[in-house]
Design a protein around this nucleic acid. Structure first.
Lengths: 217, 217
DNA sequence: CCAATGACGTGAACAAATTCACAACGTTCC
DNA sequence: GGAACGTTGTGAATTTGTTCACGTCATTGG
């Protein structure tokens, strides 16, 4: 079966919840319990888990350690990915520490910035280089994933450089959409847009929808 | 017509693109031009714009200033929203400057943190208070929107406090889902999950989909 | 003035995502 | 051992989102 982006996103969150924020003594979980924690419907949980090839048992639920194992397998969590942060402004630097040791398989190994005062030194434990060195270091360190935290006006230009240097996945925090060739994965995180959506539903006129939760029956 | 979240998100991005990253001398734009910039199909752009009640003219396209005016109207951009950042760690502090003056109608007026060394002083131009003062200040400053940047273990507890204090919209950066009562808007931004999705498609096995682009015919 | 153009608006088709509803089946209890 | 229970897995229905395809219309050029 083909796993959609949306399912993928939820699977990663199930895993995070189960491995990091779930009482260690519990060994099993029901779809409706996970649903309650995630704010989703139980049937959606079950649908998502169907993709894994792991099956729960009625009246017992899903064995947590097995579940995590199967999710890891789908996500191919054995591979270590080298990640670069491009743009060491406030946001870039914050992400260095935020992402530090969050996932063992995602390791931030370099940062780049055009500002000379930021390059050629460690920042938050990450070696920061000049943009000029980007191509060489991306290849040398085998970096395939980049987190883009440059100003909107630079975003497309920098993206093109990264792609030429062999980057295969980009998470874009710049407030403009970027274009990428097919074969490169893209995740756009537009914080301003998200905040505006929240503000919209906060207006009296609109009665906020969002993340419904449902009992199974 | 009811505007869906997805459409809403795209509208905010159209506006950002048109007002901030588009040559000032151009007064009109075609659906296919906007589509190319956004990485979407032209027909989707036209569908989205249908919601606005503003109509372009064939062969001329859409008048940019009008378009922006109508989007503003839908988003009710006249209202000023006070926003609080909860959790003044690296990420919270970065968002203070990142969101500074990005949208005139979204103003960060306060921050809160449990760490006493961070409270009762200005950080990045934002007055930062102790969490104990949250309820009082949220009401006094009429803050209805909060950006949650606390550790996952604190997220739900802090959320409950915010909601009790009258917050109507939350943008959650904590790496766990939070539950909110109906009537409160929620936007979850899970950076780790997004990065994992990118990593997934960067693996050789999967051939990355994402943001297709299409000509109209 | 009229035909050709090329973009718009939109009904209809299509696709994706979610929910419903229920059969199947371990488990528990009597 | 057998009936009752409660949860799973999944086909079908529904809802939501996207694309197609074409009629319409303002403009341009002959």
């Amino acid at each position: 079966m083909n796993i959609s982006n949306k399912v993928l996103g939820r699977l990663t969150r199930y895993r995070a919840l189960l491995t990091e924020y779930f009482p260690k003594e519990k060994t099993h979980i029901f779809s409706h319990e996970l649903a309650a924690m995630m704010g989703l419907s139980a049937s959606q949980i079950r649908r998502d888990l169907m993709c894994l090839g792991y099956y729960g048992v009625p009246r017992y639920g899903y064995e947590i350690s097995e579940l995590v194992k199967y999710i890891n397998e789908i996500l191919d969590a054995s591979k270590l990915h080298h990640v670069a942060i491009v743009g060491a402004g406030n946001l870039g630097r914050a992400l260095m520490t935020f992402l530090e040791s969050r996932r063992a398989t995602l390791k931030i190994v370099a940062a780049f910035d055009e500002d000379p005062s930021k390059s050629n030194r460690m920042i938050n434990g990450v070696p920061c280089h000049s943009m000029d060195a980007a191509e060489e270091i991306l290849r040398r360190e085998d970096i395939r994933i980049a987190i883009l935290c440059v100003p909107g006006s630079e975003a497309q230009r920098v993206t093109d450089r990264l792609v030429r240097a062999g980057v295969k996945g980009i998470m874009n925090f710049a407030p403009v959409p970027i274009r990428i060739p097919v074969g490169v994965a893209l995740e756009e995180i537009d914080v301003t847009s998200a905040l505006e959506r929240v503000a919209f539903f906060t207006n009296n006129r609109a009665n906020a929808p969002k993340e419904r939760r449902h009992a199974d029956r």
